[in-house]
């Protein structure tokens, strides 16, 4: 075999698929857009069906905003009714406003908060070089604890973050009481200062912790997590390590992941009340991500065509908390 053979073979084979119906293809794309939106995003307010101008073949309808604005930007995420096995209790959205205030009754403290945020494509925040953060406080909570911040998504890809009190103890620490209520304030910030971004869409939801969890090192890990409409299950071998306040020494957590037919979801982070130091995650010695203490990151999908070695290294600064490194495998339906 030489390269000419290979090129010839690829060109010959590439011509095998016969002509397809364009209307069928566009209908298929439409179905996938709709399905994806059902999973991840539903149009803000009253979603409308827009009949679009069709060029040369049967009409196709995509779900979009009804105001004639950019479709992707008209798609406001709504938090799913169920996420990681947790059922949504209630949610609030900014609905065009630049901030959000919500008085939340708490029948129980076994709940978590999740947020979502999406910036429009033409967003022009005051500082073009700084990330736009969705920041919220619970009962004033300034500055910490009770104040949380997560980066907003862009380009039609809204951020979804589980951040805030996750245990009854956490809620009590910020002053919440069962059968009481808390005041949640949400706004956009850059460099810690409130900003306005017209067209930004964000929301916050309260979830009942109905999903299965395991506790390790004092950290709760969801047994099942949802990513892009697929469900992944926590695998044995997850690692947690409680850190003492020992200055000047790196702490490393290592984990081997197996070869698998499907990508794996890696959960990692530094669950610490004080985000004072950084960590990095490496895969087979190559940098995969960096972060700061304070919370667990959203799970990251990695390929599993081969075994991998993961290493989570907390930098030497003095800080306590718990390092977490775990992986999830796709659940076959």
């Amino acid at each position: 075999m030489n390269l000419d053979d290979l090129r010839r073979e690829l060109r010959t084979r590439a011509s095998e698929p016969g002509p397809a119906s364009m209307s069928d293809r566009l209908s298929g794309v439409q179905s996938k857009v709709t399905a994806a939106r059902r999973r991840k995003a539903v149009a803000s307010g009253a979603a409308t069906l827009v009949t679009l101008t069709v060029v040369g073949f049967a009409a196709t309808q995509f779900v979009g905003g009804g105001d004639g604005d950019e479709m992707a930007d008209a798609e406001l995420v709504q938090m799913p009714e169920e996420l990681n096995g947790d059922l949504q209790i209630a949610a609030r959205y900014n609905e065009g406003a630049q901030d959000l205030s919500w008085t939340v009754p708490l029948d129980d403290l076994d709940v978590v908060t999740r947020t979502t945020c999406l910036l429009p494509a033409d967003a022009a925040p005051p500082n073009a070089d700084a990330p736009v953060m969705l920041s919220w406080t619970i009962d004033g909570g300034a500055p910490i604890p009770g104040q949380y911040s997560t980066q907003c998504g862009t380009a039609g890809d809204p951020s979804v973050s589980t951040l805030g009190p996750t245990t009854r103890e956490d809620w009590r620490e910020i002053g919440a009481r069962r059968n009481g209520e808390v005041q949640i304030q949400v706004e956009l910030q850059q460099d810690g200062e409130p900003i306005e971004v017209p067209g930004a869409q964000f929301g916050i939801a309260l979830y009942d912790k109905t999903g299965d969890r395991v506790t390790s090192g004092g950290v709760e890990l969801s047994v099942l997590i949802d990513i892009d409409g697929e469900t992944y299950k926590l695998q044995d071998g997850y690692k947690t390590r409680e850190l003492a306040e020992t200055a000047g020494r790196d702490r490393v957590l290592r984990l081997r992941t197996p070869e698998s037919d499907a990508p794996l979801a890696v959960l990692y982070g530094w669950d610490s009340p004080i985000p004072t130091a950084s960590y990095d995650l490496k895969q087979d010695g190559e940098p995969l991500d960096t972060g700061y203490g304070g919370h667990l990151e959203s799970p990251l999908l990695i390929d599993a065509e081969a075994e991998h070695r993961l290493a989570l290294r907390a930098r030497g600064a003095s800080a306590d908390g718990v390092l977490v490194l775990a992986y999830y495998e796709l659940v076959d339906d």
Partner: peptide
């Protein structure tokens, strides 16, 4: 509307 033009371009 921008969305109509965009859809036409996509198609």
């Amino acid at each position: 509307p921008a969305s109509d033009a965009r859809t036409a371009a996509f198609e």
